[in-house]
Every structure is written in C-alpha cells, then in structure tokens.
Amino acid sequence: MKLKLTMLAVLALGVIAAFLFLDLPHNWEYALDRRVKKVLAIALTGGAIAYATLIFQTMTNNRILTPNVIGLDSLYMLIQTFVIFFFGAVSLPSTNKMMNFGFTVGIMLLFVAVLYKLIFKREGRNLFFLLLVGLVMGTMFGSMTTFMQVLIDPNDFLVVQGKMFASFNNVNTDLLVLSVIILAVVALYAMRFSKYLDAMSLGKEHAVNLGIPYNFVVMNLLVIVAILIAVSTALVGPITFLGLLVVNVGYQFMKTYRHSILIPSTMLISVIALIGGQLIVERVFTFETTVSVIINFIGGAYFLYLLLRESKS
C-alpha cells in the first residue's frame, strides 16, 4: 500500500517536472513562471475535485455519482452565458476576472443553500432526492443556456465556448492566491470529519449505530463538497467527469476502503491525469482540443465500461 502510494507520488512529481522543464525556451524565467502557475492551478483543482468526489461517493454510498451533477456545472455555464448574452464579451462583468469569480462562486453557493433549505426542511431527508432535484434544475439551466447560446453572436459564442471547457492557460494570479486560501481553509475544516469517512461508507444505519452524528456530518460534508466544486469550477471551468474517473481508478488501484490512503492517492491520480492530459494537449494535439474535453471523454468512456461490467456480473 505504502509502495503504491509512493509510486503515485513519484509519478506525479515526474509529470510535474516534465511539464515544467520540457522544452524550456530561452527566456525561461517568464515561461517557467507561467508554467508554475499552471501547475499550481491544475494541482489545486485536480486535488479539490478528487477529494470532493471521494467524500461525496462515501456519503452517498455509491461509486457512480459525482457532485458535479447536482447542477453546479450547468449553473456555471448559465451564469457565463448570461453575462456574455446581456453584457457582451468585452464588458466589465465578463472581463474582470475577480468580479466574475466572486459573482459566480456567490451564486453557486446561494443555489446550493437554497437547495438544502428546500429539502432538508422536510422530513425524509433523502440524499438522492437532493441530487435529483439538483440535476433537474441543471437540465432547466441547460435549456436556458442553450436558448441564449443559439441567439448569441458567433464571435461572442467563441468566448462562451471557451468557458465551456476547463482551461488552465489564463489563470489569474490574484484568483489563484484567493482560491488557495479558500481551499486551504475548507481543507482544514474538513479534517475534523475525516475520521468518520471509513465508517460512513458502511451506510447510514451502520454509521448511526456506531455513534456518528450522521445528519450533522452529512450536512457539513455537503457544504464542503459544494465549496470545493464551486471554487474549482469558477477558477478554471467545468471538468464534469474528472472526479468520477480518478476516484474509481483510485479504488481499483489501491483496493482498500481506508480513506487515509484513498484521499492522497485519488488526489495524486487526479493531478497526474490533469497534468498528463495537459501535456498531451499541448504537445500532441497542439491545443486542438482541451484537457477537459479529453478527460470528460475518457472519464465518460470509463464510466460506461464500469456500468457495462456491473451489468454483466
């Protein structure tokens, strides 16, 4: 187990090194500075998404769900499309990154808060119910987004399209610092709950029997997941199926239920996948496609494979 974890760490470092130092141009200081920022942004989002997906799956006792589906990705697209549709691609709300970031994260968290209020007020708090409501809202957001996207001027649409896919090419330094701070605070807060995770994966009834304050923990974890996803999406854009991919690979590779091992390994796998993907995008595809499109494609195909395998056995 230790060995595998070390292997992952070495691999991750190797990919990072390759990404940083491969083909450094002459004015290497500038290039390196940009690359370091990129790596940082990638590691940050990759880690956050992997962690969020892992605890989300533990909470729901399900390996085929990802928190991105509760409507946050669609909401992100709706906000971005809305801004460009009403203010245009060159307006302040769409070019000022700080403003856009704050605005987006704010609305996303507001959405999650409303969702919780709506559902946890009632009796029979079913987690799946919450997810389905989120997903349906997501479809609704999607309809509205589609409507605006069709009407948008093709040039503006290119800007929208740019936002449809996560991109690490233009990460704003201030935003990066802000995200690091937010994520660090959230991660620290999440530490309190990490001891519950193994027992939570036995399911609600066992967890309650073992003395876990279940509803309290679930509420808190959901908030943590929502913040992680909202921040990483607002920082670089949606990568819907990254979490699904890396967490399942993590389970298959590590073959354990212990979160103390799963958490670091899925985060490492996520970083490897993203940076490796980015390398491929830059060197092999020469930016013809984006890393999130590739990851979603691979993640999607892998998920279908999982479904098919499950339905065979």
């Binding site: 990802t66 494609f297 998920f303």
Partner: peptide
C-alpha cells in the same frame, strides 16, 4: 448521468 456522459463524448 448516463446521458451526461454520452453527451461528453458528443462534445469531444
């Protein structure tokens, strides 16, 4: 979700 995944392939 299944639909979303097929969609991601379409998008690719």
């Amino acid at each position: 979700m299944f639909g979303g995944i097929i969609n991601s392939i379409t998008t690719f």
